[in-house]
Every structure is written in structure tokens, then in C-alpha cells.
Simulated assay, not measured.
Amino acid sequence: MAQDERHLHLILNGKSAQREDVRAAVEAVRGRGHRVEVRVTYDAGDAARFAREVVGREGDDLPDVVVAGGGDGTLNQVVAAALEARPAPPCAFAVLPLGTANDFAAGLGLPVDNMGSALLLCARGAAKPIDVGRINGRVFVNVASAGAVTRITREADPRAKRLLGGAAYLIAGASRFAELTPTRARISGEGFSFDGEFMALAVGNGRLAGGGVALCADARVDDGKLDLSLFPKPDADHMMALLSSLVKESETGLQGYARTHRFTRLTVEADEDLAVNLDGEPMAAQVLEIEVDPGAIRFVTG
């Protein structure tokens, strides 16, 4: 991939289309000689549709890099649709982090506060193969999670999260303590087994979720494996300690409590349907077949 002139195709979440820093970033990158196409989402499903269309191009019309302009959910939609349309996409992918949390970008150490630097990295940074995860065939790029504590991190008011940081999780957890019901499941695969109740599980290709919480602190996007963090049912005192770890965004507290395992394939069989969060995209199933798709895409990581 040439470093001097690169063809970017930016799929931009419509909520960010009027941001002046985004417009300035696009103009600055164009001013450096790069070609930047912009498509703005309006309806649900637009990001996926645009991704399918662009990876189907051939020759000079195919961009060097497809950039997901949005949060982790937008990145998920773009990558999942591209892989569905073309299992070995010839173009690379990148992210312009415009979401509330931007956990995947933050976990990779990419610029999340300066859109000019972030888009310039898309135009000049090196692309390398990275893995993606799959649950029952559905793709996740960063982290998939399930369970009661995970539901709290997902449902915590985004406005409170911006104002209070991790304390928003403690407030949500304390106010809804009676709703923190455990899930019973059997988990097996590659030297790991569990039969009991848990409050949350996270499967990480990336490290961070829920607004900077290191649910899978040691995960790497390019090692051909996924990382499991399983949080068994605690007593009431340990539940508040777990929520406090979320407040402090403490890797030590979370990982000291979790059962962890690195794998390529894992099966979860729950007693009832599990609500699962794939990079912010919802699904539900009673049996989860989880596997890694190693080196599935090339991604601009700097």
C-alpha cells in the first residue's frame, strides 16, 4: 500500500456529519494529496450497505482503506458487512473514533481526541492483519459481553458516564442491585470448563469495553486467539467490590476476580437465552459458539 497517496473511503455516522473538526480533518488530509470519499449514514443499515458496496469494487475504484467514522458499533457494522460480502477484503480498514467510548481505538492507543491526527493516521499508518471474533457466525471486532453486570455497563446513562466516568456504573449498579441475577451456564473448550452461575462474561479481541474498562486486559488483536474473562457469582460484598473496580477502571481488581482463559474456540450453554452485546450490537441465544477468525482483515494500527 503506497504511503504517499492513499484512497480513503470514509463511512461517516450521520450524527457526526456536521462536526467542524471532522470537516477540517477531511480537508487537511485531502490537502496532503490523499483522496477521501465520504458517505454519510442516515437510516439504520446504511453503514453496512455502504461497506458491502465499497468492498465489491474492482481496480482503481477500490479504496486502499475503508474508514469507519463513528463508535465501536459503526466499526462493527462496517467490518461485519464487508466480511459477509467479501470474505477476504482486498482493502484495509481503519477507524475515525467518533463514539462516546471509542474502546477499540483507545485499546490500540490510537488518537481519540484529535480527529485531524486520527484521519491522518488512516492515510499514512501501516496496515497489518488482525483477528475478529465470531459468535454463532456473527462478527465482533472488539469485545462481546453478556450477563447482569455487563447489562449495567451497557445501560448506564451515557450522559452520566460523560459527567461521572466510571462512577456512573456504581450508581446504576447500586440502584438496580435486586436486578443483578446470575446466569447459570456450562462453558467448555480447549482446557477450560465451568458449570455454575456467573454475573458477567466478556470475550475480548480488544482490551477495553464499557467506556474504558479493561475487561480483557491482556487481549491482543493479532495473536490468533480470543481472551475470556468470566465473573462468577459473588456474594453481596464482592458484588460492590466488582462495581468499584468498574468505577476505578482498575485492571488489577477486575482480573483478580475474573477467571480468565485464552482460546480459539469455546461453547457456552446457558439455561435460558443470553442477551449478548457485540461491540454494542445486540443478539440473543441460549447456546453460543465462539471462535476466532485469525487475520481476517487488515487494519491501520499505526
Rank of each mutant, 00 (worst) to 15 (best):
G211W: 08
Q77A: 14
K128I: 08
R124N: 09
R138K: 13
H7V: 10
A202W: 02
A44M: 04
R184F: 03
A285I: 02
Y42N: 09
P90T: 03
R138T: 03
R35Y: 04
G210I: 04
V276C: 13
R265E: 15
T150N: 03
K161R: 12
A168N: 01
R52W: 00
D235M: 00
L180W: 06
E291R: 14
P282L: 11
E5A: 14
M1D: 08
G212F: 02
A202R: 06
S16G: 01
D235W: 02
E249S: 10
A25M: 10
E53S: 13
F140V: 14
Y169G: 00
I135M: 10
V38E: 12
V268P: 04
G210P: 08
P63Q: 04
K248W: 09
D4T: 13
D43H: 15
R162C: 02
G70S: 08
P232Y: 05
T100Q: 05
L164F: 14
V300H: 00
L278G: 00
A24H: 09
K233T: 13
D279E: 06
A47H: 07
N277Y: 09
L201T: 00
A185N: 07
R35G: 07
N142W: 09
F104E: 00
H34E: 08
A92M: 07
Y257A: 08
P182N: 00
F50C: 12
G59P: 05
P129F: 03
L208G: 11
S188V: 05
L254Q: 04
V26M: 10
G166R: 01
P97Y: 07
F194D: 05
R52G: 13
G280S: 13
R49K: 11
M283V: 02
R57W: 13
K15L: 12
V66W: 01
L230Y: 05
L119W: 01
D43S: 13
H34V: 10
V112Q: 08
A94C: 11
E291L: 12
G125N: 08
F177V: 15
I297P: 00
G204I: 08
L274F: 14
G116H: 07
P294C: 05
V268D: 10
L96T: 07
V139E: 00
T150Q: 11
G191T: 07
T301E: 13
L98Q: 08
H34D: 05
D46K: 03
D131K: 05
P232M: 11
A81T: 10
